[in-house]
Design a protein around this nucleic acid. Sequence first.
DNA 1: ACAATTATTGACAGCGCTACCATCGGATTG
DNA 2: CAATCCGATGGTAGCGCTGTCAATAATTGT
Lengths: 343, 343
Amino acid sequence: MGRKQTKSGKIRLTEVAKLAGVSPITASRFFRNPEALSLSKRERVDSAVKELGYVPNLAARALASHRTEVIGVVIPSLTNNVFADVLRGVYDSSEGSRYSIQLANTRYSILQEEKLLRLFRAQKPAGLIVTGINQTAESRAILESMNCPVTQIMEIGDSPVDMMVGFSHYDAGFAAISHILEQGCRRIGFLGARMDPRVQRRFEGYRDAMKAASLFDPNLVVTTSVPTTVTLGGTLFADLLAQAPDIDAVFCVNDDLALGVLFECQRRQISVPGDLAIVGFNDLEFMASAVPSLTSVRTNRYEMGRHAVTMVIDAIEGRRPKEPVLDLGFQLIVRESSTPQSI
Amino acid sequence: MGRKQTKSGKIRLTEVAKLAGVSPITASRFFRNPEALSLSKRERVDSAVKELGYVPNLAARALASHRTEVIGVVIPSLTNNVFADVLRGVYDSSEGSRYSIQLANTRYSILQEEKLLRLFRAQKPAGLIVTGINQTAESRAILESMNCPVTQIMEIGDSPVDMMVGFSHYDAGFAAISHILEQGCRRIGFLGARMDPRVQRRFEGYRDAMKAASLFDPNLVVTTSVPTTVTLGGTLFADLLAQAPDIDAVFCVNDDLALGVLFECQRRQISVPGDLAIVGFNDLEFMASAVPSLTSVRTNRYEMGRHAVTMVIDAIEGRRPKEPVLDLGFQLIVRESSTPQSI
DNA sequence: ACAATTATTGACAGCGCTACCATCGGATTG
DNA sequence: CAATCCGATGGTAGCGCTGTCAATAATTGT
């Protein structure tokens, strides 16, 4: 005969039902759809749950219902500060809900992404949050075959798999360059590391803004596929100076690079913003206290994480947003590093 | 009669077993204990799995076996760069194993920690990784009642719940101060934010090193419970200067504060290290490229994450380490900011 | 008052997998 | 050659919960 007896102390839904004087299925409904119970039974079950300290067995629930209460989150990097903020938003707004977060890291590999998505699909998550809008055809097919709400985050585009929260990196890049141009700069360098799709879009914003002013020059552009660091900012800036010694501004695709450029300027006695304006991207906290303070494009990362989870949970529970695409925008935070005349 | 028929296309272990010409239980063993199968059956099951693209149902597995393949990780912050590195190690070394990571964030609240641990216990994780060694009595009791390997990370101490990976924050603080003293500094300030237990220990290292040199002075110490930022480094430094205008060095409990101090020095035209030596903690990447480059205590965070997972998995699978406590140490990375004489 | 409809509740039969024996040959031993 | 052991395999019976449908009670309309 089967296995050893259920430990007598073990509290199952049956025990709760017994104490409450209802059938197990009614007790089950108490968790899934309490409104369906009459008030009296609802209270009886509620107090039985508390009295016994009942904790549902999630594995049994998942097995019987063919669903889990897991929201998968696929991001390309754990080190990048940007994702730390997004994740904080994600975890903050998943707390208190019944859903738990399952994190997966692609390390910017699209193959790894496909693999992870396949894994997620097999585990039937209740919802999914993925980074970016440039999934491979294969990944996109998996996402579409996934039988749950999906939110793409970090950027927005025309054809969401399902929902999107983000902002236009192209517009943000364009706005940053427009601002620098307004300051009277003409030779604006572009520094890019790890040219992922979003960075690529920022570049396109830069390129088009420069072209619109008839100032685009390939010599002003230095990029690499190497991951971003502060040190790399200095190195790339040195390369840029060698290529185009007459630059009067630099747009960095992220704040780490911008900080590296600032340090390199200090090292070479280049006055900022006198000789060179610097603009970063993301507006990490340190940008405000650098000397000089550094201009950046603020992105609403925490909010992005929060909204992504909220949208997914709402969709799971049948409350689909009217608009599938949510644009959180960006703010150009102008500081000393890009306002030469004010110095 | 029950529910709708199993979708004919659905692949269960039974299908695999049928194709391989073995009983379902043998197929099951293929995953749990392949060595127990004869070579021929092992190969037959293996190819059947591949042919059918079988993916195990984790919920069913968990329900039947009373176990999950989840390793819980409890950390106090998602924003802190320090934990980003630890997590990278954690995720990197969990990949390729059968275990998945479940992350939980206490936000430095010990009550939240208790709550999360209780939650984890209810879900019967295969292993657990928790931050620090200062759990409340209640939390500790939960950890001890948890029926799985537990690793405490970030610091080491005398009475591990089970296993530990980390280093001595006291020794690290002491070593940093010893170094500064060797440079001839006498009035060494201490800047601390979010005085969590580990930061507290660094302070004790500072205090004892200063006392040993008969140089301890409460006026040299400025701390706050506010979370760390670069900006805060500047603020605290201003407070310190007001309290003790004659300081000749500052030890910051983390690198963000150190960077804030550097910026504040630039703002006030205080020469570093000429007028003031600066030493940080953690050795984040930017410390090397700051101007002047900033001395810091390097901590092996990525390795800590890797080892924690490896130790837990090994313990789950019966390979307990000889030594339950693993000291990963630290390295004092001396740079320009703390070597006045070399300038 | 009676049929028709709607809220509540319950019975049944699994979800897909594994723990616990039982079994069965074959190798080893005395 | 029987007794013993061991490694490999299989049968049975659930793990704790929920989907489906049926049954019952309460409510409404005519």
